[in-house]
Design a binder for these strands. Structure first.
Lengths: 98, 98
DNA sequence: AAACGGCATAGCAAAAATGCTATAATTTGA
DNA sequence: TCAAATTATAGCATTTTTGCTATGCCGTTT
């Protein structure tokens, strides 16, 4: 069983000392979503990799937040974990000047 | 003003004659989301391209559904259109055998 | 301690997306 | 209808992701 919170804490510790905190935030959100989908399906990285027709190291890299995957890859993850990929652009309330 | 429905109809016309209908479905859903975000922001392809620090042809390609963009690109679109990118893997009720 | 399972990282070739220019096609408005 | 604006396509160099192998790093169990 993967302990997501511990991983998340590890990231936060690093991120807090990073100059590019905001940029990293989204990467981590995505990586976190991948981990959640995988553990929900009860799969190891290798098992997920098999279902995606790829290798364990690829899954590890995705979950590390060091790449910005293509939607092709995201779709593979969705299928392999029995989930449905949802991508949307949610309108943001216009920024107030002050 | 972009008429989304007409574009969508154009796609459907093609898709209905395609052997790979399912695979195309998601591409189109994403392309459609991009178009919606752009027209919600009231931008032309060129204006959006400028805000993304790229070119009009790149936006056209994204909206054509002929590529599977990286999340890096999706983030640029979100920022440029004043939206927030949301990516999630929604658990799917296990497929019944029959 | 040794072995095992699960995850992380490095490094390289191959594949795919991006950036770009040019130009065609289409739509819109005068 | 004509012109301008907007969108679509083609082709190529560049950049980035992916696929892969190998290997290291824990934690756990025996």
């Amino acid at each position: 069983m993967t302990k997501i919170n511990e991983l998340h804490n590890k990231w936060l510790k690093n991120a807090n000392y990073s100059a590019a905190y905001e940029a990293l935030e989204d990467e981590f959100a995505l990586a976190s979503a991948v981990i959640k989908a995988r553990s929900r399906a009860g799969l190891t990285q290798e098992e997920l990799a098999d279902r995606m027709q790829t290798k364990q190291s690829v899954v590890a890299r995705l979950e590390s937040g060091h790449v910005m995957p293509t939607t092709r890859t995201l779709e593979k993850i969705a299928k392999a974990t029995g989930s449905r990929l949802k991508i949307s652009f949610e309108p943001e309330p216009a920024h107030p000047i002050a």
